[in-house]
């Protein structure tokens, strides 16, 4: 799970073009200025590519924080 969070942090650094982002399970979209709805879609597509998983639209609209995203990735990847 810690591994997922670390790899996810790298994806965030790439997508938001900002190496200073520090992710915790409690991080939400309001903590990262550029994380809006359009970026959310881009982010989710990059996460899919990085982890080799597939999301559905209901998966990605229901997320409340990074913790839920980590759990979703782990569930999809069968970890």
């Amino acid at each position: 799970m810690a591994d997922t969070l670390n790899r996810l942090t790298e994806v965030f650094h790439d997508v938001f073009d900002d190496d200073d982002i520090v992710l915790t399970r409690q991080t939400t979209a309001s903590d990262i200025e550029a994380w809006d709805s359009l970026m959310h879609v881009t982010l989710m597509l990059q996460v899919e590519a990085a982890f080799g998983v597939r999301f559905s639209s209901s998966d990605v609209t229901g997320l409340k924080d990074v913790g839920q995203l980590v759990d979703l990735i782990d569930a999809k990847a069968g970890r």
Binding site: M44, S56, D59
Partner: peptide, 9 residues
Amino acid sequence: DYVYMPLSF
């Protein structure tokens, strides 16, 4: 929420 998101996925 009802067009862009569903379309994207």
